[in-house]
């Protein structure tokens, strides 16, 4: 592999024959700096590169949607109920099954542990912004045919086909709601632990999300577990695959790990205080 790094090696070899690189003989790349002065008079004073008249000189770009005096289209109709409250609606940024499979293949996600928002954010490639009303991830069906991982995943929204794809491989999927404060914690748990505040309990979903998260068809975390296992069978029959038996699986314990509806982190209870410097947990004494 002697030829590799040829260019940098060549450049370094060239530098050996050149004078010492010093503050005095450095200069920026040619043409990388824009001159903020305009030329005057005979030498460059004519049109200064803006052309003759018109928008080239004046840069009079009209504001978006402006129709030179007409009532603009966006103001023509007084009421558009579709957009009512759009700035308040919950957002669920998508991640596809393909993305998830790539993360698993490149060892960014450990499938021997249950996957939740913090696992996805800790991969360093996905980001959740709860302050911009992002309430978690939705799993989309892109790359559905190539998805082969057996996982226990918790997302905030998933379609039927995605649920089928996960369960076909012997995995488990749950959809669950987190309030913004919990999402702040899950988006960067390390940073949150450094605050030194006891872990709060998770809020229950708002009224308009209750239906979704109590529905066993959506694998909601508030649904009846027995109904969920029934729906698993129903979905397997609908999509025509044999449902792998989790009970006989070697990873049974991992696959059946769930959070309490009021719990934010796996295995850590509300009210505990995590000290990551001393590696201690401060718990309330039981009376």
């Amino acid at each position: 592999m002697a030829h590799l790094r040829e260019t940098s090696d060549k450049a370094l070899k060239l530098l050996r024959t050149l004078p010492r690189v010093q503050i005095g003989n450095l200069r920026p790349n040619p043409n990388s700096k824009q001159n903020d002065k305009r030329g005057r008079a005979q030498h460059g004073g004519d049109k200064h590169g803006a052309g003759n008249k018109g928008s080239g000189q004046r840069q009079n770009f009209m504001r978006l949607g402006y129709e030179t005096g007409n009532q603009p289209f966006y103001m023509r109709f007084p009421y558009e109920p579709y957009y009512k409250g759009h700035h308040m609606k919950r957002q669920y940024p998508p991640i596809s099954l393909l993305q998830l499979q790539v993360l698993i293949d490149t060892n960014r996600i450990d499938t021997s542990q249950p996957i939740d928002i913090s696992t996805l954010c800790n991969s360093g490639l996905l980001k959740l912004k709860p302050a911009e009303l992002e309430y978690g991830f939705q799993l989309t069906d892109d790359g559905l045919d190539n998805f082969k991982a057996k996982i226990n995943i918790e997302v905030q929204h998933a379609s039927e086909a995605v649920i089928a794809a996960v369960e076909k491989n012997g995995g488990v999927i749950r959809t669950s709601y987190y309030d913004p404060r919990s999402l702040h914690m899950l988006a960067n748990p390390q940073k949150w632990f450094q605050k030194g505040v006891p872990i709060p309990s998770r809020m229950l979903p708002p009224q308009d999300a209750v239906d979704y998260y109590t529905n066993p068809k959506n694998r909601g975390y508030l649904a009846n577990p027995e109904e969920i296992s029934k729906e698993r069978l129903v979905l397997a029959q609908k999509y025509g695959y044999e449902l792998p038996k989790i009970e006989n699986d070697s990873a049974y314990e991992m696959l059946t790990t769930t959070k309490d509806p009021r719990q934010i982190f796996y295995g850590l209870e509300p009210g505990w205080l995590i000290n990551i410097v001393d590696k201690t947990i401060i718990k309330r004494k039981l009376e």
Binding site: R5, T7, S8, A11, L15, V21, L26, P28, N29, S32
Partner: peptide, 19 residues
């Protein structure tokens, strides 16, 4: 380590740092 001591000598980036 070659990634630190035999990296591409980006003199332009050195200049940007100095500036």
């Amino acid at each position: 380590h070659p990634d630190v001591f035999a990296a591409q000598p980006r003199v332009d980036i050195i200049q940007e740092n100095v500036e």
